[in-house]
Amino acid sequence: MKIFVCIKQVPDTNEVKLDPKTGTLIRDGVPSIINHDDRNALEEALRLKDRYKDVEITVITMGPPQADVALREALAMGADRAVLISDRAFAGADTWATSNTLTAAIRKLGHYDIIFCGRQAIDGDTAQVGPQVAEKLDLPQITYVKHLEIQEDMVLAHRALEDGYEALSVKMPCLLTAIKELNVPRYPGVKGVFEAYREKTVELMSAKDLDIDPDIIGLNGSPTNVKRTFTPAPKGKGMLLDGCSKETVKDLFSRLKDKNII
């Protein structure tokens, strides 16, 4: 079984701040990490590799040359192959241009059974790239996967909903997006770190390698325009109704009625 895992290197949002003037992220000096949900996707692929024979995991990222570190970390965790899609021509891509690029790379990389993405990246929160790649490759997809099993050529997955889950099955090849409830990712092993740098390689793919129309990648290929980024004003303080439940419920109903909510 061949699994492709798409990962993104993102700034660690625990440490990131917004520039109050421009409203953009201050990335200077902020450590970079593998996006959380992508780590869950990779972990699930690694668990399949632990469980079944002949699983090969390829991690793929589109990013600047520094994204090499994220791929090495994935290799250190146990991935077999790593591909860095990097070119100035890809810079400024929105989700549409990104999924165009990833799709082109995946086509070049050959056979796969599962493409695994994280649900969304913490620096964009769009949750669009995974589903777009599935559409462009004409693959069935299950998003928000929180539980996964393989049965012959089928993937059985639980797709998280707000108040429960859907049990779905889909034939491979398919695309899945992972959420954090899926698993607890492992740490890279120390031995893995040395192997990742000394014994494994990161394959590079540039725009030329992809034979892709320059008008559908990078800033040119991005229909999205970011008008302004800002920190939303904090919500007002909540209100706590104290007292016995009969009274507070009555109180609550009248307040909601006053506001025409019910």
Binding site: P31, V69, R72, E73, A76, Y187, P188, V190, V193, F194, A196, Y197, R198
Partner: peptide, 15 residues
Amino acid sequence: LTKEQEMVRKLMRDF
């Protein structure tokens, strides 16, 4: 530090 040593630091910190 080398990149390897940096990564060892990071994983040891997380662990």
